[in-house]
């Protein structure tokens, strides 16, 4: 494993969980719902994913369980905020706390057990090409899924009727309702999609990134994902750039330290946040475009009056 290749591979593993969770939250927010419970859904995905993979021995069943875990949390959020019309910010924060506590309870018996690592897919011939092979053709399935999701959500949101409905619900739920769309149902679907992605991201952590279960193992990645969504101005491709930029600066910070250049580690640790924010603010400099892409009804509760 050469130096540069190793760094690029590490950057991909560091960026993938951020991208997975953020892309789900992006869709949720596009429908006008602010779910601050990403961290809670992620950590539930991680514990369910690890638990299922450990008990059945199949990482792929683990992935499915991770998705289910995230969706279970998202479903509770949807019932609270959509059916019972609770405050989204408060419910989201509560969801994070619940997720962290509940996952600790579920995962108690999995602590200290090494799990099976999700294997890399190796495509014959292609993955043996030096340098490019392992990077492009030797990743695990979740990395490919995360990339595919970026293109799929871009396509669905901006090129299909379904996407138009989601965006209209997010921009003006009263008009969408007047046109006859079921705002609540659309938002339910988008929240569940967000939960599935967060669960997938959690499963990535406990199956591929560090194949083990430790309480609180998400360590704040859900919050980074949330921030990335806002700074990408709700555009999937920018989100991907942001996630990879964050991962790259994060890993380069560690790399520079190991080189011993004497740059303060505290500064290097804060650099990913700084660089990502600055870069995304610059690329979203067009104010009109930003305003157009911001879901106008985000965080607002919708109660149909008739």
């Amino acid at each position: 494993m050469g130096g540069t290749e190793a760094i690029i591979l590490t950057i991909i593993t560091a960026s993938t969980p951020l991208l997975l969770a953020a892309i789900g939250e992006l869709v949720t927010e596009r429908s006008g719902v602010l779910n601050l419970g990403v961290e809670g859904m992620m950590v539930m995905g991680a514990v369910c994913g690890f638990g299922a993979a450990y008990t059945t021995g199949s990482p792929y069943l683990g992935i499915l369980a991770g998705i289910a875990g995230g969706m279970f949390m998202a479903f509770m959020f949807a019932v609270m905020t959509q059916t019972l019309a609770t405050n989204q910010v408060a419910t989201g924060l509560a969801l994070t706390l619940l997720g962290l506590g509940l996952s600790g309870l579920i995962g108690e018996s999995f602590v200290g057990l090494p799990g099976a690592k999700l294997e890399q897919i190796s495509i014959p011939f292609l993955s043996t090409i030096p340098f490019i092979g392992p990077i492009l053709f030797g990743q695990d399935i979740l990395v490919y899924i995360s990339i595919a999701l970026v293109f799929a959500t871009t396509y669905v949101l901006f090129k299909t009727r379904v996407g138009l409905i989601i965006r209209s619900v997010g921009d003006n739920h009263n008009s969408a309702h007047a046109l006859g769309y079921n705002v609540i149902a659309v938002r339910y679907a988008c929240i569940l999609f967000g939960g599935a992605c967060s669960g997938l991201s959690g499963a990535y952590l406990s199956l591929a990134y560090t194949p083990q279960w430790i309480e609180n193992m998400t360590a704040g990645r859900g919050w980074i994902a949330l921030a990335l969504v806002v700074f990408s101005t709700w555009l999937p491709k920018r989100l991907a750039i942001g996630a990879y930029l964050f991962g790259a600066v994060w890993i380069m910070g560690l790399y520079v330290q190991a080189q011993g250049f004497g740059i303060p580690s505290q500064f290097l640790s804060s650099l990913p946040y700084l660089v990502t924010i600055i870069a995304l603010v610059i690329i979203s400099g067009n104010k009109t475009l930003t305003r157009v892409n911001t879901p106008a009804c985000i965080g607002q509760t919708f109660v149909p009056d008739r």
Partner: peptide
């Protein structure tokens, strides 16, 4: 305690 970051450091 940040398993992911500790793992990254080890890889680097």
């Amino acid at each position: 305690f940040d398993p992911g970051k500790e793992a990254d450091a080890a890889k680097v």
